[in-house]
Amino acid sequence: MSGPEVEVETATAVPRVERVPRSHLSLELGHLYMEDLLGGPKALDRHFAAVKPWADFLLKRHEGLRVSTCFLVDEYFSQVKGPAELIPELLDAAAKAGLTIDYVARESACAAIGAVSPAELLLDRIVPVPAQGSDGSRPSPQYSGWLTNSEHGIAETWISEAMAPAHTWSPPSENGARAHSISMDVQLWDEPKGVRRWSCAHLAAVWQMLRLGLLRYEGRAVVEPVVWTDPFPDTWAALPAVVHLPPGGERPRRPRPFAAYRTMTILETRFAKVEQAVRLILEQTSVDGLVAAQAVEQARAERVELPPEPVRRISHVFTDPS
């Protein structure tokens, strides 16, 4: 074609996504249920003493790289202690063990941050793994609050000759299994008294996605850590979703952003089941194309190797205090 070419662009016609700064690794220094905290500073001391050698090993392995540490406070299901009491205890216990916590997050932030629900965002990004023979004609299971990795044959019923309902049993079969199945059903939410309550597994999956910086709402980042130097409030609701606690109260010269290319989570073995559920959810989660591409490009610029699947960016250490 000859003659000048005119390109017209309408801003609202081009989706954009906000870039989030990333560390190399987001290291979670263990997790405790609210009830565990009733043990007071002693329980926390024991906890961080158990985490310490593993954290040291990981920090050594990432020497010279940006590693941010975080701790997630479980205050979604119960609130035994307020931030004014708990956070200083937490920071003291960590410091006593020689550990620094850069970011403290509220678990309820995985359910809602202001008007945005990260848990909803993740739910809509789940693409259930198809059984063999899925040609697109079968509607995806209307989210019943459950996600599975398998086909189940156990619901087959028929009326037997004696007119009594009978059940047949056929074994579950894992979708995409190589030879043998490992079947798992995960509850994502329930609605007691008509109010949506997210499961621990789903919130933990959201937590991983937030740490990987892979969730956006209308293109905007979902979590904006807030530097906190004031005394901590009495209620969790008065605290931002994620607070940044830089040593000395100042932003460090070489910042270690909250989000990271990869995450490492140190946990007691009792959390292994929840984390397996997290992996099942993330295996069936599709990341927005632009967000995924942005992370890849960021990594490439820093020569960081980044697997395309989010589930391969998360690792765990399961260990119990000896």
Binding site: T10, A13, V14, P15, V116, D124, E218, D288
Partner: peptide, 12 residues
């Protein structure tokens, strides 16, 4: 159709 995803629009 997808919660939190941007719906695009244009007049031109």
């Amino acid at each position: 159709l997808v919660h939190g995803e941007t719906v695009r629009y244009s007049d031109y």
